[in-house]
Design a protein around this nucleic acid. Structure first.
Lengths: 250, 250
DNA sequence: GCCTGACCTTGATTCTGGTTAACTCATGGA
DNA sequence: TCCATGAGTTAACCAGAATCAAGGTCAGGC
């Protein structure tokens, strides 16, 4: 269990702990991007890696900040979002353990154009630009991984655009619930499952490009139709198959 | 002028012409992704390159088709779009000469998830997967370019998401006009410029996530406010600065 | 000169989703 | 205990944009 739960409060550790190569290597060995690197390579990486423990609400970077590397979530949740001139916020993505962000900006050598904020107390790694670039020159398969990662990100984002522009609010929510259901190792039992929202409804609403109010209304409608049962942040789905086929607008 | 206008109709040439290494190398030498490669490297590439002349309306690939390489537009315009279950279409991007598409899908080794169709008679190159992969193993700087390209694409797409979710239809259109104005080498003269829409209004509307009707209405409103003058596909902007500052919702 | 089809516009109407604002409820101090 | 806070809900109302339904315009073909 490399990317396990947080040691709940960021403990007495300073916000950014000092390098401890051995410890870092253990963590790095399980990062998807670095899997399969040998100990020497990992050690090279460790030079540029910094562990960060941040509390809920901490802003990792704002739009416009310079970018010196990329981040990797060990535990907790980080939201990526932008803010409009009028101060309203739109959540682009909620990053979960094992995911990384900021690579694209790093490769473009431009400032961040979104902001990142911890939704819960979180632990992450920051990998400095220079060690990434060095490793890229050294190892073509590492380049391949990066390319694969960026491609997947791109794919994901296009799927989001499709979702935003072709699906109604209701369909987006149903789709979200079904995806959450799939990714949370299902208990196998017939079609009856429960899922727990990873964060506040307001944040998820924004992620789906809805207002909190509208999100609330739609959940209510779905509940009224007997498709789901809402219990705080836990949502029970009595019949997944039925929910899936209900997408066909009401 | 490497990427010049089309020899208007795709001439008598077959839809896919046979390799002619010398000719291809001349074309390849000016492709952004390949700039600076030496003749040997270009020749290696040429083995996997195919020139395509397609007429308006030709579908290059559908969603679900397997991907064997990526495409590069020499002249003409190609639209990338997806279609919803109910048959409505959403244009993601309109590719212009010098731009390439399909790389991300190629690197993921998955089928296409959007479709590509020529908006005008067009000439393009298809670069086969295997020569790209070979070159990547051989040349780390080539990898860097690909990474830079993918990163830029990602950035672009996130900017689109921002646009879709934070801006009103009117603001999106104004933004689009201003961007077109910038990219078309301005005639320098004070603030007065004219731009020509690259394709039909319906397609541009879809690109901006609007219906054709709504697009038409907004153009009308802008014209009424004296911000633009519409003359078929040509749009005159009497005062660019004024248009820019008008974004501040009406 | 007329017909056709593609493209565009316009008006009436509907609807999805946003806005505003009041209210509930749980939590956690001080 | 009381209050402050933040999350969530609800309802009334409004607006931006889609849909539906005609028309209009224009270029090309016959």
């Amino acid at each position: 269990m490399p990317l396990s739960q947080c040691t709940h409060p960021p403990s007495a550790a300073p916000a950014t702990t000092q390098p401890d190569t051995e410890h870092l290597c253990r963590l790095l060995a399980h990062v998807p991007l670095l899997e399969g690197l040998n100990p020497d390579e990992l050690a090279r990486f460790a030079r540029g890696v910094r562990e960060q423990n941040v509390e809920k609400g901490t802003v990792l970077f704002h739009r416009g900040d310079p970018c010196h590397g990329f981040h990797l979530v060990l535990c907790g949740q980080i939201k990526l979002a932008f803010t409009s001139a009028e101060g309203q916020e739109k959540v682009i993505e909620i990053m979960r353990p094992g995911q990384s962000f900021g690579e694209a900006v790093m490769f473009m050598e431009k400032p961040y154009f979104v902001m990142a904020q911890a939704l819960t107390d979180s632990r992450l790694l920051h990998i400095a630009k220079n060690v990434v670039f060095e490793e890229m020159d050294r190892d073509p398969t590492f380049c391949r991984r990066i390319i694969a990662g960026l491609s997947a990100r791109l794919h994901h984002l296009i799927a989001d655009v499709e979702t935003y522009s072709l699906l109604s609010g209701r369909e987006r929510i149903v789709g979200y619930l079904l995806r959450e259901e799939e990714s949370s190792g299902e208990p196998g039992l017939c079609g009856r499952v429960s899922i727990r929202l990873p964060t506040s409804k307001g944040t998820i609403a924004s992620r789906l490009n809805l207002t909190q109010e509208h999100f609330s209304r739609i959940l209510h409608e779905l509940a009224e139709a007997g498709l789901i049962v809402v219990e705080g942040r836990t949502i029970h789905i009595p019949d997944v198959e039925r929910l899936r086929t209900t997408s066909a607008r009401y």
